[in-house]
Amino acid sequence: MKSSEIRDSLWSWLQQCLLRRTPQDDPVSYAALIQALTGYLLIDLIQASASSSLMIALGMTLVDTLLMVVFAWVVLRVTGYTQRFVQTLTSLAGTGMILGLLALPLVQLAASAHRNDEPMTNLVLGWLMLLVWSVSVQAHIFRHALTVRYGSGLLLAGLHTVLGIGLIETLFPQTQG
């Protein structure tokens, strides 16, 4: 990809994080999809590595990414919008990467506090704000991908988030507390 295309993709994902742009505002691009998934995987791996061994972090990253891909495909397949898969997945991964970058300082602070057995109460509000923002962005993406009301998108985004947290906690219990 050219640097101008990368810049345009990053700008679009940032605008989608601000709910000002939709997945269908961007052309179908497998290059952008690969870029978004690569960035998402990298940021997810960095976050997971802050509090887990590299192998556990890799497993968590792969499970999280696979869930995002499969969840998007199933939702679009069931609703008959599979032609929107590339744009939807690109948006989910791209915005996830942007929000993941914003979360990195919190991840580092939480890992440091955990290692030093310090209270993390001052981080809770930041985590909550990022979680609400992330679910809102996913709801926005699903809403436009499926041409439904925001509430329907919000239900899907909430389901995806709960499934992701539950799956990670079930498959990787040793990383908890």
Rank of each mutant, 00 (worst) to 15 (best):
L67A: 06
M68G: 00
M68H: 01
M68A: 12
M68E: 02
M68Y: 00
V69T: 14
V69H: 04
V70N: 06
V70L: 13
V70H: 01
V70F: 09
F71N: 02
F71E: 02
A72Q: 03
A72E: 05
W73D: 11
W73P: 03
W73C: 05
W73L: 10
V74R: 05
V75A: 11
V75N: 02
L76W: 12
L76M: 10
R77L: 13
R77P: 00
V78F: 09
V78C: 01
T79Y: 11
T79E: 09
G80M: 10
Y81P: 00
T82M: 13
T82D: 11
Q83P: 00
F85K: 09
F85I: 08
F85A: 13
V86F: 04
V86S: 03
V86Y: 02
Q87A: 08
Q87L: 09
Q87P: 01
T88W: 09
T88E: 11
L89W: 02
L89D: 04
T90D: 08
T90M: 07
T90F: 05
S91C: 06
S91R: 05
S91H: 07
S91Q: 03
A93F: 07
A93D: 08
A93P: 03
A93S: 14
G94V: 00
G94I: 00
G94A: 04
G94K: 09
T95A: 10
T95I: 13
T95R: 10
T95E: 08
G96R: 07
M97F: 15
M97V: 07
M97G: 03
M97Y: 10
M97H: 02
I98A: 12
L99W: 03
L99I: 14
L99R: 10
L99N: 10
G100H: 05
